[in-house]
């Protein structure tokens, strides 16, 4: 059941991205071109999504548990960290360079364009690189401070927002 829901959610998500214009890097770059010929239309994508999700979120989390899973898995991190800011800054640079963020890129893979194919391959490589880097830095800090509490608390929770 959880797999069926995930697949349906993924499908609706992709349709939303395609209909909204997010799968068109030219439009995305136009939206980010605040200093030039700014095309603000894509603000309505986030606007529409946030209105629906903000209302739904408040109703849904009143439930004792989700319909399928035994509990909600929601982000618990509260602190604004250097990783959060540096990572988001790098993501923004990549977004402005390519015009793709992860969802629209993956949705566009089936269109068969070389550009999207290359973007998705290097994006997955970037994600893999982060994993290697995180593992190395966890090992480094574990060697520096023998108490394993810090990497254990940080590691699994870090990815939870997304």
């Amino acid at each position: 059941m959880r797999h069926v829901v995930a697949a349906v959610a993924g499908l609706i998500f992709a349709l939303g991205l395609g209909i909204s214009g997010m799968t068109d890097p030219g439009k995305v770059i136009g939206f980010l071109d605040v200093g030039g010929a700014w095309e603000p239309a894509l603000a309505f994508v986030m606007g529409g999504a946030v209105v629906v999700y903000a209302l739904a979120y408040r109703l849904i989390v009143r439930r004792p548990r989700p319909v399928v899973e035994v509990k909600f898995s929601l982000p618990t991190a509260k602190k604004v960290t250097t990783s959060l800011v540096v990572g988001s800054a790098l993501f923004g640079i990549g977004w402005g360079l390519g015009g793709y963020c992860p969802g629209p890129a993956l949705t566009s893979v089936v269109s068969g364009s070389w550009e999207v194919g290359l973007f998705v391959v290097t994006m997955l490589a970037g994600m893999g690189l982060h994993q290697v880097w995180e593992r190395l830095s966890a090992r480094g800090s574990a060697a520096a401070a023998p108490a394993p509490a810090a990497p254990l608390a940080e590691g699994p929770l870090k990815g939870v927002d997304a």
């Binding site: 959610a9 998500f13 997010m22 909600f72």
Partner: peptide, 28 residues
């Protein structure tokens, strides 16, 4: 088109939260 697409994205994320209790974050 942008608004309709946005509503669909919000709806998808809401379905995912209601049933699976998770955040629909693509990179994650």
């Amino acid at each position: 088109a942008a608004s309709v697409g946005g509503v669909l994205i919000g709806l998808s994320a809401a379905i995912f939260l209601l049933f699976n209790g998770r955040i629909a974050g693509i990179s994650g």
